[in-house]
Amino acid sequence: MGIELLVNLSYVAAAVLFIFGLKMLGSPATARKGNLVSAIGMFIAVVVTLLDQSIIDFKWIVAGIVVGGAIGALVARRVEMTGMPEMVALFNGFGGVASLFVGWAALYGFEATTFELITIVLSILIGGVTFSGSMVAWGKLSERISGKAIVFGGQRVFNIMLILAILASAVMFTLSTGPATSIYLYLVIGLSLLLGIMLVIPIGGADMPVVISLLNSYSGLAACAAGIAINNIILIVAGALVGASGIILTQIMCKAMNRSLSNVLFSGFSAVSAGG
């Protein structure tokens, strides 16, 4: 009880630091300090989590942190200033895939209730869309794939079918038991990765910053869903905070470009209908 209470109180402190950090990031004078405040919040959250008694084996944790930290630090230091937006897209994609795996891993070790299964499938779905969408955004910005809007006939119908297929496999996943579960699980993973690609390819390279901001919001929601799945309050709070502030930032960025969000998201499709 003692340690659990300490962990949860530290999570509250971390959430407060995230909120102040975001607030300070919004003003030029305090922005750099705000980023530091938010980083301290993250540091506290990670360190107290290591005190959690359910963690009995540290070797894989250390390996993951060392490898991830080294890659992250190296890439962040090397990247050119002009390459920043695509760097954010890449990092965001990694965050998304991490939430996907956290949700997936939550399937093992305990009997999940239907509600938990729903949150698991949500974290996998949103995490998958975030990952593949971010990778496409990164590819477009770094010109590894064409920055032009990629559209084809029947795209809208295809996307609607895809969403229906995801819904169907998600429902089947939450209802199924035994070996069938993993078949629907892989279906949800595969289809959500495909959906992420389909959502971003019809959008032109110039609109990518807005798309990245939206995907950033998604990665927050994925973390939030993963948090409910594994019953961790800081994931829920911080994820919801990023999800909400991300979607509002997306709106503001659209407004600054004199466009509406739906205008950006469906620009590729309207180009098709305008073209014939």
Binding site: F18, G21, L22, L25, G26, S27, P28, A31, G34, N35, S38, A39, M42, A45, V46, T49, D52, S54, I55, I56, D57, W60, I61, G64, M84, V88, F91, N92, G95, A98, S99, F101, V102, A106, Y108, G109, F110, P209, I212, S213, N216, S219, G220, A222, A223, A226, G227, I230, N232, I234, L235, A238, G239, L241, V242, S245, G246, L249, I252, A256
Partner: peptide, 30 residues
Amino acid sequence: TLHTPLMSGSNAISGITLVGALTSAGAEHS
């Protein structure tokens, strides 16, 4: 001018999923 740093900063916060990953990696389920 702060849109991109703000996006990047809140993106770092969404890495909070690390906390969830720690418990998955450390608790020996399977």
